[in-house]
Design a protein around this nucleic acid. Structure first.
Length: 488
RNA sequence: GGUCGGAUGGCCGAGUGGCUAGGCAGUGGUCUGCAAAACCAUCUACACCGGUUCGAAUCCGGUUCCGACCUCCA
């Protein structure tokens, strides 16, 4: 079996994954800024890194997974005099900023739970780590890379770049950055246009504020991740993840802050998921073209033709590689829905297979193929393609076209359990927890219907069949009796 | 403008220098009281122009188009 390889943005290549401490993995992922409804864009990194989290655990690693909650308002931009998103929202709604943050944090958790995203090991909030952030700023100042102006503290990018590389991650050249920087009035305090805020002075009307050695203010928007990753995972840890849009400046700045404060670069592997597009354009809060997760679940957005089960969203995302953009459309989602049902009907059929005393088909290669695809930078679409090939084998066997030994059936069960359930985190969208009862009921109903058929009472037999279709259950008369499945 | 990435069949979406990705949709067949499902078979591809090669959709160069980042963003 191949070993796990992951794409590292630092090198731009797939690299063999080797944790710093054998047997355990430390991982940090940028979480949401909780000032708005969670949308499809939030689902992608959450699911991508949940997949990685699940897979690493499956491989036997002890994983500490930290995903933050940003509940300290980010600056709107440097020109804006201290406005921040959570604060703005709070003012508009006449709420405490923490009320806003708490409200959307709960919404985020609820959506993630529906998507079957595992809770991270630690979910620290930026607001709970103001003291640590001030401490880190102090270290950066002491090491000569931060300077205070009028109650704000900035990171001296130009000085830092003299003996470090500001651009290791994003491959940007500082000269280009300076050349392309916009002239903004808020930058007057800064030595260089490329410098970024570590601490920002709060204007009197700014409602989210904390005391600091430099006066009342709030932390800069790159700082929390550096601070909290170092606090919980150490100065050096294994994996840092997030969306591709965070590579610059957010993650570049994180690396600079860590190096400036601790002389260590932080994460060894940087992983970035690609964006979701809608009509070829990025879906995002700032573009106003996003669809919230709750709208997906309920089908209430005008771009949605119907509601989509959370598992359909999860499966849809796993059908694409995490580093590719994925284009949203109703057609694509409905195709995913049917595919997902086919996959789980295959698992159901697998459980109904009778072992024979010989195997007429070799199923041993499925596991290796799936493992190799998964180890190749989490190539979930390829894993799924192999699982669908296995579904084909299962269905053919059910048809009597193949025979399988009990051992082979067990192997297939393990394969599906490992990938579909444990690692991919999928479950049957029809599974409402009462399946045992339904199994028994269906056996009874089909038994009665069979008697009707034997009496050639087609009308009543069809009445049962049509009635079941209204209940989303499809029955199929086969040679060896009647099968049933949930409708696609 | 700078940096980077992409262009695959009706739709989504993998991948590789020569061998079927997969899902959805379509077509023909098997099965069937009818139906559906399933199974079997099958049709639509690799933006354009050059080059390398025995052979390229896959490598190289150019062209066109699209996107991302450079400003908060997942």
């Amino acid at each position: 079996m191949e070993q796990l390889k992951i794409h590292n943005t630092l090198s731009g290549n797939k690299e063999l994954f080797k944790p710093i401490n054998p047997g355990s993995v430390t991982m940090y992922v940028c979480g949401p800024t909780v000032y708005g409804e969670p949308h499809l864009g939030h689902a992608r990194p959450a699911i991508t890194f949940d997949l990685l989290f699940r897979y690493l655990k499956f491989l036997g690693y002890k994983v500490r997974y930290v995903r933050n909650i940003t509940d300290v308002g980010h600056l709107l931009n440097d020109a804006d005099e201290g406005g921040d998103k959570i604060g703005e929202k709070a003012k508009a709604l006449h709420l405490e900023p923490m009320e806003v943050a708490h409200f959307y944090t709960k919404k985020y958790h609820s959506a993630m739970s529906k998507l079957n995203v595992t809770n991270p090991s630690i979910e620290p909030a930026a607001s709970g780590h103001i003291i640590e952030q001030i401490g880190m700023i102090q270290k950066i100042i002491n090491n000569g890379f931060g300077y205070e102006v009028n109650g704000s503290v900035y990171f001296d990018v130009v000085k830092y770049n003299k003996d470090h590389n500001y651009g290791v991650l994003s491959r940007r050249k500082i000269e280009d950055l300076i050349e392309n920087s916009r002239e903004l009035e808020g930058q007057l305090d800064k030595k260089n246009a490329v410098d970024f805020a570590l601490w920002k002075k709060a204007s009197p009307e700014h409602i989210m504020r904390w005391p600091s050695p430099w006066g009342d203010g709030f932390p800069g928007w790159h700082l929390e991740c550096s601070t909290m990753s170092c606090k919980y995972l150490g100065d050096e840890f294994d994996i840092h993840g997030g969306g591709m849009d965070l590579v610059f400046p957010h993650h570049e700045a994180e690396i600079a802050q860590c190096c400036a404060a601790n002389k260590k670069q932080g994460a060894k592997y940087w992983m970035h998921n690609n964006m979701i597009t809608i009509g070829g354009q990025k879906m995002g809060k700032s573009l106003g073209n996003f669809i919230t997760l709750s709208e997906f679940f309920k089908g209430t957005h005008n771009k949605l033709e119907k509601d989509y089960h959370p598992m359909v969203i999860r499966f849809f995302l796993l059908q694409a590689h995490y580093r590719s953009t994925i284009d949203f459309s109703n057609d694509a989602l409905q195709a995913a829905e049917k595919g997902l049902v086919r996959l789980f009907n295959g698992i159901k059929t697998l459980n109904e297979l009778f072992p024979k005393d010989r195997s007429t088909i070799d199923i041993s290669s499925f596991k290796l193929k799936c493992d190799n695809a998964m180890n190749d930078d989490l190539n979930t679409p390829i894993v799924l393609s192999h699982l669908f090939d296995a579904v084909k084998v299962i269905n053919s066997t059910k048809e009597g076209k193949h025979d399988l030994l009990a051992h082979d059936i067990e192997q297939l069960k393990e394969l599906f359990h490992k990938y579909a359930i444990t690692v991919f985190g999928l479950y049957d969208i029809h599974d409402d927890g009462e399946s045992t009862n339904i199994e028994a009921l269906m056996t009874l109903i089909l038994d009665i219907r069979n008697d009707l058929k034997n009496n050639k009472d087609w009308a009543t037999a069809d009445k049962i069949r049509n009635g079941l279709i209204d209940l989303n259950i499809e029955i199929k008369d086969a040679k060896d009796g009647t099968n049933w499945n949930y409708k696609k």
